[in-house]
Amino acid sequence: MQFHLTPEQVSIQDAVRGTLADNWPMERLHQFADNDQDFDPQSWNALMELGLAGVLVPDSGMGLVEAALICEVAGEAAASGPLIAQLLTVGAVAASDNEDAKAFLEGLTAGTTVATLAIDSEFVQAASSAALFLARDEAGGLRLIEAGEGVTIEPVASTDRSRPVAKVSFGAVKSHVLFPAGHPMVDRIRDAALVLIAADALGGAQHCTDVSVGYAKERVQFDQPIGRFQGLKHQLAHMALDVEPARAFVWYAAYAWDAGLEDAPRAAAMAKAHLSEVYTRSTRAAIAAHGGIGYTWEYGLNYWFRRSVANRAWLGSPAEQRQRAAELAGW
């Protein structure tokens, strides 16, 4: 029995965290948020140089648990780039039999070929920078669509400034079928996406809690650090109570997917619903705990708030996921 992180898993998180600390500090996030780019090559390349994009390759010795641990840290840092899509696309292409698609595998695994997700939504991250789109076709199969001809990208003012989206539609495109409609991998990739969004939310909610606790120890009012006052202390305790027990829930959803457990699809839906709620509550609570400074653009909490808005809506809101979970449970 092993249901806590191994030293290897901890070191994966440490490596990602260190890389993002060096390459994605708040100044960079501020700069990125105010320019018109939808992709930041420098931090992306640094992340990809860790060689972790292949965690979902079937014989990598890793799996969705490790992918979730990576996405959790990306969520903490509000990292830029379509990381969730990249990991899923590498996994989907590696598991597919399509040799044409497999030609992309080397570039995808190295991170030099960028993939993004275009499933169940016209809003797509890093749309103008991605070479490949992982999409569902009209029949319900999973396809890899090549950027360029037949792909229409309409810029929008993105709420999430860390992972800006554009509106994407597909016409006569060049594409490769990874899995036909009805193949179990089609749903499995969607389930994995739900777990990774939940993991990103977990990291974001943890960040909000950590920043709020740190601020409550430093900020002085009435001659006391405000964290001494029970009103705030109890709010912070509730933030931690929301986030920390949810961590093992995300682990379980990822583990169930890796192990192919029967309840994996439902665990993914439940984790996405629960963590989206936790993230929403945490960002709101963090701004409330900070007072005025939290409401400024400059302090930066808004990036996590905005990211929580995106995560919540992405691939189905919490209420929609709960509805699915209720059906899957046969209630």
């Binding site: 093992a248 682990w251 665990a267 629960h274």
Partner: peptide, 9 residues
């Protein structure tokens, strides 16, 4: 579920 899997942890 959060409570259950945390007890596993």
């Amino acid at each position: 579920m959060a409570h259950r899997y945390t007890s596993f942890r």
